[in-house]
Design a binder for these strands. Structure first.
Lengths: 134, 134
DNA sequence: GTAGACATTCCAGTCGGCTGGAAGATCGGG
DNA sequence: CCCGATCTTCCAGCCGACTGGAATGTCTAC
């Protein structure tokens, strides 16, 4: 199968496929006599795996490290497991930070509605936000 | 005050100050006879405002839009309020997405521990993640 | 034989928020 | 008078994950 079909089957663009190959995420495929990339069904599987892994929030670099370990013959999922664990921690931190930001923002938004607009005249700041600086 | 002092007072680098000026976030200051930037205390205030606004999660572009409206003589905080409201919605969506990702990831992490490592031999994928693709 | 739908390579650009470094001017202290 | 800190400008690069486009080659159908 040529690159266009692979792309269609996996829901990415041909650009993305070549990009993944360029960063070592996909192996270089066979070539037809005329130089076109010629993929087998394993490529579909592997590319789907990349997208699935990406959907779980792993970076392409992390996915590459999983695939490299696999390619090196590792039969253990412990690397993946460790990666997932660490990512889980990251995610929790990120969520906590966003929650905090959300709370801060909600306070400001409320204040914005309540404030007297005519008292907000300083061209260098906005009292809505300035009032949060304390 | 020169750029270094302004930077120190506001906790940013001189690089950042010049960058903010270059994108129109800070007005061009007076210059000394020798060409050095010469700031007044308003600049400190304005730069602090930028950092405060940034801390609430607004992008520099959004902050610029608030400042522009102010500069244009708007005495209403409604633009800021609208901006905050929209940002609040964005934030909620982002949090929801992260929560979903976290749940998905937690399932995978659990599975990674439970799976039989010796059955994970396909070099193109990892059963931990492959099992989530359904 | 020709249109147009695919493929190839390579280089550059996007987003946001800076950061690094070179080459030169200027300032303050000993 | 010189050292070193600070300032100036400008250009380039970083992160991640692509995306756009030019110039060119190839395949398929009519």
């Amino acid at each position: 199968m040529k690159i266009g079909e692979l792309a269609d089957r996996t829901g990415v663009t041909t650009k993305t496929v070549r990009y993944y190959e360029s960063i070592g995420l996909l192996a270089e495929p066979e070539r037809t006599a005329s130089g076109y990339r010629d993929y087998d069904t394993d490529a579909v599987e592997r590319l789907c795996f990349v997208r699935d892994a990406q959907a779980t929030g792993l970076s392409l670099a992390e996915i590459a490290s999983v695939l490299e370990l696999k390619a090196a013959g590792s039969t253990s999922c412990s690397h993946t497991a460790a990666l997932l664990e660490r990512h889980l921690v990251d995610l929790d931190e990120q969520i906590a930070r966003l929650h905090q930001a959300r709370e801060d923002l909600a306070v400001l938004a409320e204040r914005a509605v309540a404030l007297d607009p005519s008292s907000c005249t300083d061209p260098n700041r906005c009292q809505v936000i300035a009032s949060a600086a304390g």
